[in-house]
């Protein structure tokens, strides 16, 4: 799936915009910019990001 997909929030009917999004895992907090609904905040994480960078970060934190 292409990462530059233009998605819209079904409820708010608006296009997603980059929003600073916060994560936590194993007591560590971090953030990154991800497409999210500017109104309700519904976020999108593409599969390629999950399988790539997110998995790598998860493993790094597990090994830390």
């Amino acid at each position: 799936m292409a990462e530059d997909r233009k998605l819209i929030c079904h409820r708010c009917g608006v296009e997603l915009v980059p929003v600073k999004t916060f994560f936590n895992y194993l007591g560590h907090n971090f953030n990154t910019e991800l497409p999210a609904c500017p109104k309700c905040g519904e976020v999108f994480i593409p599969e390629s990001l999950v399988r790539g960078r997110m998995t790598a970060v998860e493993q790094e934190l597990e090994d830390k």
């Binding site: 999004t21 916060f22 936590n24 976020v43 599969e47 970060v57 998860e58």
Partner: peptide, 12 residues
């Protein structure tokens, strides 16, 4: 069409 999962949590 797709299913995937991650361990880290979205804080929101």
């Amino acid at each position: 069409f797709a299913a995937y999962a991650h361990r880290m949590s979205l804080e929101a």
